[in-house]
Measured scan of single mutants.
Amino acid sequence: KRPMNAFMVWAQAARRKLADQYPHLHNAELSKTLGKLWRLLSESEKRPFVEEAERLRVQHKKDHPDYK
């Protein structure tokens, strides 16, 4: 399984919050909304998630050196 990218790291927590706020939204609508919200974030707001995704990528490479 591939490591999560920055969006997926962020969306993991954001999806729970959004689903709690809008329990009537279908998963497809949640995903579209999350995409729009992510694009509205500034680079500095995204930075911690980009850094975490990079950490996960490096760890994955270490754990699975033959993964392509």
Rank of each mutant, 00 (worst) to 15 (best):
L18Q: 00
L30E: 01
Y67R: 12
S44I: 05
R16T: 09
H24G: 09
R15A: 04
L41K: 12
P23C: 09
E51N: 02
P3K: 14
L30I: 02
T33R: 14
L56C: 12
K36G: 04
A14L: 07
A11C: 05
N27H: 12
Q59L: 08
S44Q: 05
L41I: 12
A28P: 06
R57F: 04
E54D: 14
W10M: 00
P3F: 07
A28L: 12
G35I: 02
K1V: 01
K46C: 03
E43H: 14
K17M: 03
L18S: 00
T33N: 03
L41Y: 15
R2W: 03
H26M: 03
T33L: 12
R47P: 07
L25E: 00
K62H: 05
K1T: 03
M4R: 10
A28E: 13
S44L: 05
T33S: 06
M4T: 10
L34P: 00
R16K: 14
R47L: 05
P23N: 14
L25T: 01
W38R: 05
S44P: 09
Q12K: 12
N27I: 12
G35W: 04
S44C: 04
S31A: 02
K36S: 04
P3C: 02
L40S: 15
L37T: 10
N27A: 14
L18Y: 03
L25D: 01
V58T: 11
H60A: 11
G35K: 14
D66W: 07
V50I: 09
L18T: 03
G35Y: 02
A13C: 08
Q21L: 11
P3A: 06
K36I: 00
S31E: 14
E45I: 15
W38G: 01
V58C: 08
N5W: 02
R16N: 05
E51T: 02
L34H: 00
H64G: 10
Y22S: 13
K68H: 12
A13T: 14
P48L: 02
S44Y: 02
R55N: 07
A53P: 10
P48R: 04
Y22K: 14
V50A: 09
F49G: 14
R57T: 12
R16D: 05
R39L: 02
R39Q: 06
L30K: 03
Y67K: 15
M4H: 04
E51R: 07
Y67S: 14
R16E: 08
M4P: 07
A53D: 08
A6L: 00
M8N: 04
P23V: 11
L56A: 11
L41F: 11
T33H: 14
Y22F: 13
A11G: 04
V50K: 08
S44K: 03
H60Q: 13
E29Y: 08
R39N: 12
H64M: 11
